[in-house]
Design a protein around this nucleic acid. Structure first.
Ligand SMILES: [Zn+2]
Length: 211
DNA sequence: CGACTTTGACCTGCGC
DNA sequence: GCGCAGGTCAAAGTCG
């Protein structure tokens, strides 16, 4: 069931400002543990196919599933918190500008893997948050409900840009644009615009997804 | 049947 | 004013 290359689909590297503390570390550890367990489970299933082992594997699978759900929920919560933080810190943008407004930590392609991930390019009054999210094929859940209301092909970009509106509250003015990076297909550029006027719906439950 | 996508048409700001 | 590019509308379609 679980595949050995599962790690490619869960790639939570949240590195933002000063928030990359113990939370991310903990999630990473959980993730690694899950990965290890997936490996073990796969090995078990392949090694011998006695029903006892099978039962154990199924049991393990259930536990792992639960663990994964927890991880996902925490990841979702963390991401929402990051968004909130960015928005609230954007409110006090009078004297102290943030770090370099341009490129913060782009990609340091030195050895093998790029570590770039999320960066804020926040600017302007009406709370615009731009996020570069890289996560293979993990569904992008940010804890809100979105209704798609348009899609356009942007010049010099082979991939279309999708327009979403927050549909949790009918009066919520928040909009969201999603578009893929021209070069790296695994990078989505998400632009949040506006501020929610309602509480966040239950995080981690059924939400929309897109690829 | 209601909520959401899809998709072409329509609108708008901007440079020429 | 015209044309283009980006943003939005809304009718028709899809799904549970
Ligand atoms: Zn909202």
């Amino acid at each position: 069931m679980g595949s050995a290359n599962y790690d490619s689909s869960i790639n939570l590297n949240l590195s933002i400002g000063s928030l990359q503390g113990s939370d991310i570390l903990r999630i990473k550890q959980l993730h690694d543990a899950t990965q290890q367990s997936f490996h073990d489970a796969a090995k078990l299933q392949k090694a011998d196919r006695s029903t006892e082992e099978m039962r154990l594997a199924v049991e393990e699978n259930g536990r792992l599933k639960r663990m994964l759900a927890i991880i996902r929920e925490r990841h979702c919560a963390l991401r929402a918190q990051v968004l909130r933080l960015m928005r609230s810190s954007a409110a006090s943008s009078s004297t102290s500008m943030r770090t370099s407004n341009r490129k913060i930590g782009k990609q340091e392609i030195n050895g093998s893997r790029r570590v770039s991930n999320r960066q804020v390019v926040e600017d302007s009054r009406p709370r615009i948050v731009k996020i570069y999210v890289r996560d293979g094929d993990l569904v992008m859940r940010d804890g809100y409900y979105w209704r798609k209301y348009g899609q356009k092909v942007i010049r010099d970009n082979p991939y279309p840009r999708a327009y979403f509106r927050c549909s949790f509250a009918p009066l919520c003015p928040v909009k969201k644009k999603v578009q893929r990076s021209a070069e790296d297909k695994s990078v989505h550029v998400v632009i949040y615009e506006g501020e929610h006027n309602h509480v966040q719906p239950s995080p981690g439950k059924p939400l929309n997804y897109m690829t």
